[in-house]
Structures are given as structure tokens and as C-alpha cells.
Design a protein around this nucleic acid. Structure first.
Lengths: 235, 235
DNA sequence: CACAAAAGAGAGCACTGCTCTTGCTTTGGA
DNA sequence: TCCAAAGCAAGAGCAGTGCTCTCTTTTGTG
């Protein structure tokens, strides 16, 4: 997959055609995904759209689930890129403003790509267990949030809340894994806020807010600011 | 001629058989759901398991999606019942304790019925739009949380946070709909916490916490207490 | 009892993911 | 340059799916 970068032109025409066709397949599949959802993504329909026969597709993706996995990775990357771009555009703002910028970028991307969002943050596909390949792409938004909180911490703009004793071990473990330079209570709150952010987005996207929350943008913005407060970010 | 009874068996044998078979179908479908997930729920397999032919199933459910809808309603009810039972068991405790009891019941039910949880809080099925019939069942947990917060409010154990001006209209609309006796800032925070709760549960269930949060029970408990604080519940 | 309504059985349609075999084209090394 | 090897597309075919239609059997009731 991501091995054909530098040697792209050096490789023969065949290899180039391969990456091109692979991209075309993903493109067509993404189209079906956006139109009908993951459940109705049909290899045969993709093949038809590309003017090939269904069995030819198996030269590029060994199974339907592998195609889905490729789309999942792309979706994570697309979401991560959107979040990073929003963060970059707010680079000079306060940590709280950068936090909300990233969160709103996540929401915006989700609303623009509902089926792709459902693919990565909805129910996992049948027997599929997220391959390790998705991890780096999936981590991008989280890393962004960690970075924002780290900056706030360095600026002395953080106030934590005490942790219960039963959680201290796990909090320290998570801290060592994710951000050893931050206090454990902050890291814990950050991880929870990370999950809660996707709760807000998912509820809006999957219709749970129908007839409950109507004017969602200000609601989301406020919820996300309160989320930041919970992590310790001060205005 | 003989026996104009039908008083004790008001519905007749046929109607009873119908409800029995309907229940058996749902039961078998639930089994497949738990074993393989919603995507692999096959009408034919259900029929096979029951010793009927697939076409006979259509006398009970007009389509596969209708079967799924029935399972969705049952799942909402099962989750709602679990939450209500946990709430009832903690009836004499403080609002904060009742809050955590309900939240932990939701998490426990989700862990015990992952595929059913995915059915109701994961990505919606292809073209399906939640029929209005699911609403009352879906609302049970939310009503429970509203009731807890209302009790806390009556006991004077609530402290709200100011809302931004852009949100005041929507906050008042939601308050009028959901809990006119509560302050709008509380209702807003409550709705957000409701969504965030499912973010926490979903991330654990769908594997987003893998290699991130290991000891999840204390993490969840603490997160849920902080959630309650965010709504204004004091210990 | 007779008759209409309800239920089951079976065949069949259009579709799916996937495999296997058969030819054709490109490629890289001798 | 030539040629075997590898890559690729096509087609047929298998087992499975949701769903519809027709036909037969069962069953409750007038």
C-alpha cells in the first residue's frame, strides 16, 4: 500500500497502473459507501462501475473486508487531516480555541462524510478486528488533543481534579503511555473527553438527537467548551 | 355449535401460536445476532433453525429490516429495564449514587449484549430510519437520568453553569420539551452528558480503548462521576 | 359441516462474495 | 533479443442471500 511512494515513477507502467486501478476501486467504493452505506457496498457493483468483471477485483483486494479496511484507513486519515488542518489554522489561538477548532473539525468532517464516520466510529463490521495498520491513522486526532493540552500545561493554564485511589494505577499507566509530561488526572480526563467528543458527534449523526436537539451547532460548541473545562483547560 | 367459550382463551389457539412463533423467531434471531452480528443475520438461517422454510417467515415479519426493527425495540426495552432495575435498587441513595448506578447498568448491559448495543447505538442499518415506534423504548434511560437530576434539584443539590447567549433559545426549547421544571443550563448539560455517556460506552465496546484504557471499570466510574459533576450534581 | 382466512411448502428470480480455470499481456533476466 | 515467469482480465460456477409467487394444507368460525 504505502510502499509505492518514492519509486513511483521508477516502477514500470504495470505498477503504476496497479496503484491507479487500486485508487479507482477505492474511489468507486467510496462513492457507493456515501450513497448506500457500508452494508450495501457490493464488489460486483464496484466492478461494474469500473467496467471490469468482479473476479478481477480480487487481484487488488483479497476480499470485501479488505476493501473496507482500506477505506477505513483512508477515512481515519481524511478525518485526521481535516482536524490537523483546522488546528493549524488556529495555531496562534489559545489552547481552548484550538481545542474547539479541532472538535468542530471532527464534527464537520463527520457531517460531511457520515458513512465513512459510521465505518470508523460505528459498530465494527462482522468478524473484523481493527488491524494494527489502522492505529497510526486513528491516533491523529487524539495526538492533536494531547498536544493542545500539553501546551496549556506548559503555559500553566491547567487545573486538574483529584483521582480516586482505585484509578491511580491505571491513570499512571495511561500517562506513561500517552503523555508522561502531563499529570495523570489530566491524562485521564483527556481520554474520557476524547471518547465523550465522539459520543456527541455520534448521537447527532446517528439520529439520537432527532426531536431532542434541534440547533446543534451552538449546542455542540458549548458542550465542547465544557468538555475542555473538564480536562482542565481554562479560558 | 359446541362450546361458545373462548372467554378464558380470549385470543384463540391460532393467535397464541402466532405470538409464540413470533417470539421464537425473535429468539432465534437474537441468537444469531449475538453470535455473528447484525450484518450476518440471515432470515434463511433463522428459518432453518426453527425447522421452517424461509418463505414462511414472511408471514411474521414482512422483511429482514422489520425483524431487525423488532429486535431494536426489544434491545431498547431490555437496556431500559436493566437501567430502571439498577435505579430502583439504589432508590434510597444520593442522586449522585443513583446516577452512577444507572450509568454502570448501561455499561454492564452493553458489555453483556454487545451486538444488541451496536444495533441501537452503532451505525444505523442501510436505508433504515428509526421508526417512531422505537422512541418510547429509547427514551427510558434518558427519563431516568432526568428524574435523578430533578430530585437533586428539588433537594437543592444542583449548581449550573452559565450558557452562552447563542444557545439560550435552543436551551429553552429543550427545557420546555424535556423538563420544564429544571433550569435550562442544567437540561443542556444533561443532554450533553447523556450523549457523552454513550461515547464512553461505545469506545470501550467498539475497541477504541484497546491499548489505551486497560482497567476500564474504575476509569468508567470516575468518568461518570465527573459527568455528573458537569451536570451540576454535587456529592 | 362448509368456507374463508391463515399458514406452510416449494420453486424461482436477481443478487451477493468468492474460487477456479483459461487465455492474454507485461516484465525482467539470460 | 528472446522467453519463461509473473501479473492480469475474463468467464463459468458454487453456495448463499432477500424476497415473491403459487399451490396446498390447516384451522377457526358462521
Amino acid at each position: 500500500m504505502n510502499t509505492a511512494n518514492t519509486a513511483n515513477t521508477a516502477k514500470g507502467a504495470r505498477a503504476r497502473a496497479r496503484t491507479e486501478i487500486t485508487a479507482a476501486i477505492k474511489e468507486a467504493a467510496r462513492g457507493q459507501l456515501a450513497a448506500e452505506g457500508a452494508a450495501k457496498l457490493s464488489l460486483r457493483a464496484v466492478a461494474r462501475e469500473l467496467g471490469m468483471v468482479s473476479s478481477a477485483l480480487y487481484r487488488y483486494f483479497p476480499s470485501r473486508d479488505d476493501l473496507l479496511t482500506a477505506l477505513i484507513i483512508d477515512a481515519y486519515d481524511s478525518l485526521g487531516a481535516a482536524a490537523e488542518q483546522a488546528h493549524h489554522a488556529a495555531a496562534d489561538a489559545t489552547p481552548l480555541e484550538r481545542w474547539t477548532a479541532v472538535c468542530e473539525a471532527v464534527r464537520g468532517w463527520a457531517l460531511a462524510h457520515p458513512h465513512e464516520y459510521a465505518l470508523i466510529y460505528g459498530s465494527p463490521v462482522p468478524g473484523y478486528s481493527a488491524p494494527q495498520t489502522t492505529v497510526p491513522a486513528a491516533a491523529r486526532v487524539g495526538l492533536l488533543l494531547i498536544g493542545i493540552v500539553r501546551d496549556a500545561h506548559e503555559q500553566g493554564r491547567l487545573t486538574g481534579h483529584a483521582l480516586p485511589a482505585e484509578l491511580s494505577r491505571e491513570a499512571e499507566r495511561m500517562t506513561a503511555d500517552l503523555a508522561p509530561d502531563l499529570p495523570p488526572e489530566i491524562v485521564t480526563a483527556l481520554v474520557a473527553a476524547w471518547a465523550q467528543l465522539y459520543g456527541l458527534v455520534g448521537f447527532e449523526l446517528f439520529g439520537q438527537f432527532n426531536r431532542v436537539v434541534e440547533d446543534r451547532e451552538p449546542f455542540f460548541r458549548h458542550a465542547v467548551v465544557r468538555l475542555a473545562h473538564g480536562v482542565g483547560l481554562e479560558p
